[in-house]
Design a protein around this nucleic acid. Structure first.
Lengths: 221, 221
DNA sequence: AATTTATCTTAAGAAATATTTAAGAAAACC
DNA sequence: GGTTTTCTTAAATATTTCTTAAGATAAATT
């Protein structure tokens, strides 16, 4: 799978290059917006990662420029954290997904695969994990092929788990993700959601409790 | 893990120094930009924390200067300003992550570990020591490749040992680490934890008792 | 060898943390 | 505006983990 990585930071770029190479991507790494544009024109990539903070040209301009030229490969944008307002901009400008730095390369790879699947005709952007499968575009969830109906928060919780299976998700991180409020004190909302999700999943032990830390999804992939 | 802390504020610097020392970082603390640059040149650190508000040189200049010299260790920037525009600047200038003051030392430590992990090609954060291995991100522990389930204190104890094998850990230091309370008198809680950990590890002699002092982990690494 | 001191082991109660329920509040839907 | 669904809160229950305490064992001291 051919991937174009546009990233000026040496450390981050190297980490992504190594990480994705290990995960069956063929990575071409350029460090400037100019190089990105000329490479995009060659149209030989399946997917691209674009960092917004480029030294020469603004990342958003790069995005607009290549979309204008008819390049329609999926592009995942990297941004500094908490630029949520900008994100709407970016999606308008033609970005397909985004991630905030710093991020986990496993999740990056999962999202890239989802983007590729969505584009490849057969359309469904499903991510599987043991008996569980989710479709990130339609937000459907399945257990052993049978669809289960999840609420919004339940789905988001499950997507978090499926995107980084076997990873321990600290409860405060999950809470931050689930609640838009900046600060919530003393609430067991997360526990209740986990409880309801477990019930809907049927197999209770799929979501493992790491006492004092958080939860993780156990599945052999 | 060698860490360079560049921070002029006495209170904050001290808090970080103590907090990170307890979390297995070896902290070198300098208070000026000039000292920072000369220390960076020695290139013997794994990671650095850089406060922007320095008395002599602007932190951003320090960052640019050391990056220009080819120092490529991960640098986490501390900033009072939480304006994303500045942050993008900083990431461009070569920062790998940032935190706004005030912050939580636990999160600081977690982010530093994340940076270190990312740098090493996202190789999973496992630390090995003889037959023992721990994964600091998932908090899993293994003996001869088989996972063992540890409680929080047991895991923390083992991590302490594994991170500095063959080092003799005085009991008071361990107690301070295990209990969040400042002062605990007359308790054999530590002994009980060591006992339970030994039992779970199987091989009892791995944790050696240094009578009158403390414990240490025996392993040929 | 007897005594002292430190550590080990065990078990039980206390404390901390997680699960489950149910009900009211909020949000979404029609 | 009323209905339905989803989310949060709170209290009761269950579970795990931590600490305490007391006797057993081992090492050092006399």
């Amino acid at each position: 799978m051919q991937l174009l990585l546009v990233e000026d930071n040496q450390t981050l770029g190297q980490a992504v290059e190594i990480g994705l190479s290990q995960r069956q991507f063929t990575v071409t790494w350029v460090r400037t917006g100019a190089a990105a544009i000329s490479n995009f024109n060659r149209q030989e990539y399946d997917v691209a990662i674009l960092d917004l903070g480029l030294p020469d040209i603004d990342g958003e301009r790069v995005l607009q420029s290549i979309r204008k030229k008819g390049v329609d490969i999926p592009i995942l944008v990297l941004t500094a954290r908490d630029q949520t307002s900008d994100i709407i901009h970016l999606l308008d400008a033609g970005a397909d997904d985004f991630m905030t730095k710093p991020f986990d390369v496993n999740e990056l790879a999962a999202r890239l695969r989802a983007l590729l699947r969505r584009r490849s005709g057969y359309a469904s952007a499903t991510i599987e994990c043991g008996p569980i499968a989710i479709d990130t575009s339609s937000r459907e969830a399945f257990v052993n092929g049978h669809e289960i109906t999840l609420s919004r928060k339940e789905y988001e919780l499950l997507q978090l788990f499926v995107m980084q299976p076997m990873k321990v998700h600290p409860r405060d991180k999950i809470e931050a993700l689930l609640s838009s409020d900046t600060h919530v004190v003393e609430s067991n909302a997360l526990e209740v959601h986990v409880h309801n999700l477990r019930k809907k999943l049927g197999q209770r032990e799929l979501i493992e409790t790491i006492r004092g830390v958080g939860y993780r999804l156990r599945c052999k992939n």
